[in-house]
Design a protein around this nucleic acid. Structure first.
Lengths: 189, 189, 189, 189
DNA sequence: AATGAATGAGACTTCATTCAT
DNA sequence: CATGAATGAAGTCTCATTCAT
């Protein structure tokens, strides 16, 4: 372990999971350290503070999701299919890594104001895609920011219910229903 | 005043606003006391603990919203119009008391598990209404819990964006768009 | 103990003594608390931080000494006698409260830059007195700041040696010698 | 370089400067290492601990000053001139290496008790010289330890003021005034 | 019912020191 | 001789809660 990369990755993963489970403030540096099998002080060789850990973790993961969606949007022409692909991707991600989604969900309240203006975020990608679809006349008119919010709500809120135990089926089984609902919101027949 | 009701109401209101602004853990009992113009110890004449304050506050406000929606659902026959009324009501509430919405949004993560099974919550009212509409054949088929989640997402996510500053228009101006989107999700033509 | 004045005074006294004995950084808040017979957290009801405690303690004690000297200077006409009175006062103070002197000595390095420009300090009083004596032609010419430093050195350095154990006699027995030396420095025959 | 002498010298110099600037406790081993351009662990190839570094640094520099003064005292017969030479030497040293003086000043509190009884220190040299002058009847009678303290005070206190910014002129310009004041204290006409 | 000084458990963070490379 | 990741003891500070008034 000549360089600390492995340690840092361990910290990141454990921190994300604990933050998702218990919330950021409720998770102590001690929790993280013992979860990662390291000393508490070691965290501070990799991050200046707990706050910095939360912030960097959020921003890197949030941007990563944005980049994913952007790539999906780029590899497909048909707006209708783009939406379908994005939702499929989201369902898959959520099924595979619920902690990641929960972490992003829980921390956004404190962290969204830290997002740099030029960052590629999931919301921006979605909004741009909608605006583009409106340009071609395929998606119905309306404030693209509002429409992006509504589509996001259709997909995210069921995930929230899943996290809180109100929905229990395998999330991927919702893919088709979510996609149709999103199309419905956007007026994609 | 003789019985301290006014003090308790002050505590409740101030606590809700501070919780909405800064989060529960980030709000100290000292913050609440000084915001309410009372001594720290006084909070403990009205609540056994901060946890209890949060819990009772959440449950009573959450149930209140459920009752409101139930009354709306009861006073209208047409499912389509019921949805419209509920969304109008939500938009009005949000416009009038953003703190209340934000508080409910932020605390649900920790508090939803405290909700008694028999409580009338907004989600339950919505779900039952959808199930009923499906029974009459007006609303399209599908898991009513999932459909309730999607409709809720359509309405709530734009509100979240409003809280985070991504949407800035007066929320009531969204009423029509939100209603149509919700209809779209439910297959209400 | 309806108000915390007694507690604060206890903190102040204990802190000063421990700072004098072991140095500021070497004295922990735990040391102070247990020395004062209180809980560690109680310190923070009276001071925002350890730093603030050190700073306020230093400034108030330093100013107090300045005021003392100023009063002495005011109550006596003859410059030569003024010097004698000041030195007598210093010797008495040092004999009575070595901790106070040591605290002031040790903390000056970090705190002198915090002294407001308009504060009446021992150094200022001494310098003004010298300048005034030069005006009357009784004290010999020269930079009054330099002369104040030299006179101060004559009086303070033996006290430092006393603190470090190099001089062990009762400090008041030095009064006459110190006074004559100070006169010598100032050219007061 | 093969034997690490250069590294050790770098550590010594950087440590002294940082100690003088910020105090010993406030200077971290990391500060020293990065100032010296080495890794933290490397300090421990040359010193067993930070404490040892401080102690050895202090003792060697303190003794060095003692030896200097002793040589000056030895190369001159006339006590009056000896004093003048010593003060001239001090003024020069201070002007050339304020950090050295400040380090010695700041660390004495913790380190003076570590000085072996047989070490040739500046204070001892000065005291012996005074005692000797008294023997010849040139210096006036009185406790030589006290007189040494007073003379030291005359010279050192202005330097302290210089460090704290209360005196700003080139220190060497004070040489004559300091010398005359010292003579005054010792009764050297 | 109300006060507010005091508590004490525990959080975050720092830093001298070690040790495998 | 040199490195730097890791340690863990210890320090400062916060805050929900208690209790005498």
């Amino acid at each position: 372990m000549r360089d600390g990369t492995a340690t840092k990755n361990k910290i990141n993963r454990v921190a994300m999971e604990l933050f998702a489970e218990q919330g950021v403030t409720e998770t102590t540096t001690k929790d993280i350290a013992s979860g990662a099998g390291i000393a508490e002080g070691t965290i501070y060789r990799h991050y200046k503070s707990k706050d910095e850990l939360v912030k960097k973790l959020f921003l890197s993961l949030y941007e990563e999701q944005g980049n994913y969606l952007r790539d999906i949007a780029a590899s497909e022409k048909d707006p209708k299919q783009k939406i379908a692909d994005m939702i499929a991707r989201f369902c898959q991600l959520f099924a595979e890594d619920k902690a990641l989604f929960t972490f992003l969900l829980l921390t956004q309240h404190g962290q969204l104001k830290e997002v740099p203006d030029d960052m590629v975020t999931p919301v921006v990608v979605l909004r741009d895609m909608i605006a583009q679809g409106q340009g071609i006349g395929i998606i119905k008119q309306g404030d693209p920011d509002l429409m992006a919010a509504m589509v996001l709500g259709v997909v995210v809120q069921p995930a929230v219910f899943h996290v809180y135990g109100r929905l229990t089926q395998d999330y991927k089984s919702f893919t088709q229903d979510l996609t149709e609902a999103a199309w419905g919101v956007l007026g994609l027949t």
